[in-house]
Amino acid sequence: MSEKMHMELKVWRQAGPGQPGRFVTYDAPGVSPDMSFLEMLDLVNERLVEDGEEPFAFDHDCREGICGSCGLMINGQAHGPERATATCQLHMRKFSDGDQVTVEPWRAAAFPVIKDLAVDRSTLDRIVEAGGYITVATGSAPDANLIPIPKPVADASMDAAACIGCGACVAACPNGAAQLFTSAKLQHLNLLPQGQAERWDRTISMVEEMESFFGSCTNHGECEEACPKSISIDFIALLNRDYVRAQLKQRRLAGQSFP
């Protein structure tokens, strides 16, 4: 398995925001099948530095699939060909010797390119800021398991909470919609008793914030396939249902605002 592979890399180079960009082809010999995709990019970048060229920029942090920093469009698929895997945990053994690999940044109006392969995803943070919180009483910590929660409900909430906010759903969506991200961030709270107080205001606030920057869902299901955490589009259905119910409830009575 330690035989080295020789790849050809087509990387999107862009000097800065709003600048014109283009693909640049790099030769990438000596790639170990045991490398992660990011390690392969490091290898190419180190050679560029040695040659006095400017290395290409890409986001990465934990490299163990939990931070959501990395994320590249690899051969037309978000996070590459391996299902339920972030770019950092994609291994080069998923490719063959001699493959040409095209690497492109996430593309969406909400994700402007910072440089090369790095995009700004702070619009996702804005959606969470709009309502991704619950209110808790301060004071001494309450007893654990004080509120009984059925196991399937807790499981569903945890499935939604697995979202790492990488933006692959937006990148994979032909409409640049953030429905899967928003529904995950919404439903992991809406499903639980602790999330009920702000449920309807949260739903309206987060959906409205999302709609300021992102497209609309046409139920292709590409996001679910791209998601490194395999978050189900069932959560999008729950978001849709909660949004209609929130609109019908409209707790914002004259002069009052629900917390």
């Binding site: 469009m73 037309g76 109006a109 292709h220 299901g221």
Partner: peptide
């Protein structure tokens, strides 16, 4: 129209769709 504003720059390399089918596209 909203969706084309949300994705103004198309992917420059060909996309490889997995779930989207002929009907949905």
């Amino acid at each position: 129209r909203l969706n084309s504003r949300a994705r103004p720059d198309k992917y420059q390399a060909p996309r490889d769709y997995i779930a989207a089918n002929f009907a949905s596209r």
